[in-house]
């Protein structure tokens, strides 16, 4: 199949950037979206041109590195699918595809389609952990956890931190990401100990990074490759409400 691509090109963080047109020729429908870009890049390199820079790592939908806004949708048109797992069979011969980086003030573009997502790391540093004395591995079932709690925590823990929620949100809000991390920990007994400090500090850091505010559009859960539910945002709101009077000792 042959496609027309419009790709965001930007030399570095300071460059203004523009959309550049490419022809992707002889693309197999069995290729992944990133493999299609690899083919385009090989062609560009053979012509001595600068290849399109984009993030990728595992290419099996679990690492959260890929970050492409494809035809106006974060990770492209397939639900619950990261861009690396999106296959070209979902497009038609002759299609025009717009490829843009995640757009958010908190995610500045590094080059072309690559954005700096270290804002997420700093939010995790602000409270996305439990403080425990390390030592010998504890007994696996030393702390009993109900099946329901374990499942809920795991649903939240499925977040791979790709940032599609921010990219999809009209307000570039990071609420689904932060909610997933907060809920992942607060649904487990180990995470309950620091629950109040965690939500207060993570929300504070989220705001500091310059993400927008949540207005309950629910675009985030539609874009999430791991189908994290907005019910976790409700849970985080609840946790935040509980922590209004919390004082750090």
């Amino acid at each position: 199949m042959n496609l027309t691509l419009y790709v965001w090109r930007q030399k570095d963080a300071k460059d203004k950037g523009y959309m550049e047109k490419f022809d992707a020729k002889d693309i197999s429908p069995d290729m992944s979206f990133l493999e299609m870009l690899d083919v385009v890049n090989e062609e560009l390199e053979s012509q001595g041109k600068d290849p399109i820079a984009f993030d990728s790592d595992c290419r099996e939908g679990i690492c959260g590195m890929c970050s492409l806004n494809i035809n106006g949708v974060a990770h492209g048109p397939e639900r619950a699918t990261a861009a690396c797992q999106l296959h070209m069979r979902h497009f038609k011969d002759g299609d025009t595809i717009y490829i843009e980086p995640w757009r958010a003030r908190a995610f500045p573009v590094v080059k072309d389609l690559i954005v700096d997502r270290s804002a997420f790391d700093r939010i995790i540093e602000a409270g996305g952990y439990i403080s425990v004395g390390t030592g010998g591995a504890p007994d696996a079932n030393a702390i009993p956890i109900s099946k329901d709690d374990a499942e809920t925590a795991f649903d939240a823990a499925a977040c791979i931190g790709c940032g599609a929620c921010v990219a999809a949100c009209k307000n570039a809000s990071a609420m689904l990401f932060v909610a997933a991390k907060v809920s992942h920990l607060v649904n487990l007994p180990q995470g309950k100990v620091e629950a109040k400090r965690r939500v207060v500090n993570m929300v504070a850091q989220m705001d500091k990074e310059g993400f927008g505010n949540c207005t309950n559009y629910y675009e985030c859960q539609a874009a999430c490759p791991k189908e994290i539910s907005v019910k976790f945002i409700a849970q985080m709101n609840r946790e935040y409400l509980r922590s209004l009077r919390y004082k750090d000792k």
Binding site: E100, A172, Q221, A222, A223
Partner: peptide, 20 residues
Amino acid sequence: FENRSARPIRYKRKVYQEAT
């Protein structure tokens, strides 16, 4: 205004999936 400034550069293409 806060939400507008959280995305200084807009998408050329934007399709809403769930937002009413």
